[in-house]
Simulated scan of single mutants.
Amino acid sequence: MLDKIQLENILFLDIETVPEFENYSDLNTTTQQLFGTKTQYQRKDDFTPEEFYERAGIWAEFGKIICISVGYFTFKSDIRHFRVTSFFGEEAKILKDFSNLLDNHFGQPQHILCGHNAKEFDFPFIARRMIINSIPIPQKLNLFGKKPWEVPHLDTMELWKFGDYKTFTSLKLLTSVLGIPSPKDDIDGSEVAKVYYEEKNMDRIIIYCEKDVIAVAQVLLRFRREDLLIEEEIIHV
């Protein structure tokens, strides 16, 4: 099945998210209560809602998207390239620009979106934040009424499971066992909010996000038993 998909029809992506507000105290009383209720199971009695707020970026109701990085293959004669670019800045603009990309360049039936753990996180997070920001959901993210085999999504973590639903395999672990250079050579997801709010270093986050996109593409190449990308084939635009 994977061998029959043309690589140039796949849009690889990754998102970075942070708490919608820098501090728990910035939330109004109602939202603080809702956050406490939402996270009660995860926190147990170990953390107060305020202590747990640094993790708010994993919930679309309390987080926001600060970067969407995408990558796609191009082929000209025997020359293969992988082009990577990022959308960042104000969240509504990120979502609108990403939606335009899907509608104008990756909206055809043969086009597929691909990420790691993207079916559980990236795809639904993007769609939920689009609703919150009153942005129409593009067809590639609108799953209403679709049968499972009609959903145009690939998930490298799901592919690695081979039907085993009891396990979570991180991208860092998967790249390690497959002999792919690790994308986690600077920061990891738990540090993104600090880099964003305290260091205000958006460039560092973009680099991190784009490395994840490249790593997902490399994983899919390994699944297809194809040569991994080399640095000269990767173009940042």
Rank of each mutant, 00 (worst) to 15 (best):
E198P: 11
G163N: 09
A60C: 04
K44S: 15
F21Q: 03
K184F: 01
L221P: 01
V192I: 07
N104I: 00
R204L: 12
Y165H: 08
L173W: 06
V216Y: 00
Y24R: 00
A127T: 08
Q33L: 12
K200I: 12
M157E: 11
L143R: 08
G57E: 05
A118Q: 09
Q110G: 12
P19S: 06
F82L: 02
G163H: 06
Y41P: 00
E231K: 14
T175K: 02
A60V: 07
P152G: 04
R80Q: 10
K161R: 15
G145H: 05
S99R: 00
I79A: 15
L95Q: 06
F125A: 08
K64F: 10
F75Y: 13
L141N: 02
N142P: 06
E231W: 02
K194Y: 08
P148T: 00
T29C: 10
T175I: 04
V70A: 01
G36W: 04
V195D: 01
T156R: 07
E8I: 12
K211C: 03
Y72A: 09
D103E: 14
F98L: 08
L11A: 06
D203W: 14
K172M: 06
Y208N: 08
D164M: 11
V216H: 00
S190C: 10
E91Q: 13
I235L: 11
I235H: 13
E20W: 06
P138K: 08
I214G: 01
N133I: 06
V177K: 13
H105W: 12
T74W: 04
I207S: 13
K161N: 15
V151P: 01
I132G: 02
K96M: 15
Y165V: 10
D164E: 15
L220K: 02
Q218H: 03
M130S: 05
S77I: 03
D186G: 09
S69A: 15
S77R: 13
K147E: 05
V84F: 07
I10W: 02
V177L: 09
P181D: 13
E231A: 14
A56S: 03
F88Y: 08
Y24I: 04
Y197E: 13
L178G: 05
I132C: 10
I132K: 14
D97N: 10
I234Q: 01
T156S: 14
R80M: 08
H236V: 13
T29G: 06
G63Q: 03
R222I: 03
P181R: 12
Q33M: 09
T31G: 00
P19W: 05
T31F: 13
C67P: 01
Y41A: 15
Q6R: 15
V84M: 11
V219E: 06
D122G: 04
E191G: 06
Y165P: 00
L95D: 06
L11E: 07
G115Y: 10
W59K: 09
Q108V: 05
K200L: 12
V84L: 10
I15Q: 02
G63S: 07
I68K: 02
E198L: 13
T31D: 03
I79P: 04
M130F: 04
K184H: 04
F168G: 00
E20A: 11
E20Q: 07
K172A: 10
V177Q: 13
H153C: 12
Y53C: 03
E20D: 01
G36M: 01
P136C: 12
T31N: 02
E150F: 04
P183E: 13
Y165N: 11
F82W: 07
M1R: 15
E50D: 02
L220T: 03
W59I: 07
I5M: 07
R204T: 14
E91D: 13
